[in-house]
């Protein structure tokens, strides 16, 4: 480990550090807003996750123990401590989408991406995860891509049509 060197930061560039500073300032460096701050910071990091050096940076800037930040990151499903991808694809795996038949959706996405859940494509473009209900039961089966909700995905064609928007 050589933590005193700055070259080893990788992801944490000077530009990103400035963006993080901006985010923290936007929330008045208020530690009670940690969850929102981390969500916003994750949103500006390529591959949508929070690496250790970024967590350590936030820890120092906000004077919150790193272990506490890690507890928060690891606890919430929307925060990730491992790299994901440019596009995070979340298939609803809840009981409603099961009942209405989401196997076509699951199979089609797996086929298109060639990956299983909690995996990213080799080019780092797509990450696939199954998530609990995100409240789109009225249009189920449903999925989210980078937070945007798509529903009525009962046929291969409907899934492909959505996916084509993210090629």
């Amino acid at each position: 480990m050589n933590r005193t060197k700055t070259e080893g930061f990788g992801i944490l560039t000077r530009e990103l550090a400035q963006e993080i500073d901006k985010t923290i300032n936007l929330y008045q460096s208020n530690s009670t807003k940690l969850v929102g701050i981390l969500l916003d910071i994750q949103g500006i990091i390529p591959k949508q996750y929070i690496p250790r050096e970024v967590a350590a940076y936030v820890s120092e800037k906000m004077n919150i123990p790193l272990s506490k930040i890690y507890d928060v990151i690891s606890f919430y499903a929307a925060l990730s401590d491992v790299p994901r991808a440019d596009y995070v694809i979340q298939l609803c795996d809840s009981v409603v989408c099961k009942v209405t038949g989401n196997t076509t959706l699951r199979d089609t996405i797996s086929q298109l991406l060639g990956i299983k859940e909690q995996e990213s494509t080799p080019d780092g473009k797509y990450w696939l995860e199954y998530t609990p209900c995100f409240g789109a039961c009225d249009i189920s089966p449903a999925m989210r891509i980078n937070g945007k909700v798509f529903g009525h995905l009962t046929s291969q064609d409907s899934v492909k049509a959505v996916f084509d928007q993210y090629r």
Binding site: S31, T32, K33, V35, D71, V72, F75, Y76, A77, A78
Partner: peptide, 26 residues
């Protein structure tokens, strides 16, 4: 306006409060 981050258990009152205080939702 505070944001959750994907945790069903935060629907429970005291857990929701923990989350608003910037902690994990227990």
């Amino acid at each position: 306006l505070y944001s959750g981050a994907g945790a069903y258990v935060c629907g429970e009152g005291s857990t929701l409060i923990e989350s608003i205080e910037g902690k994990s939702g227990r």
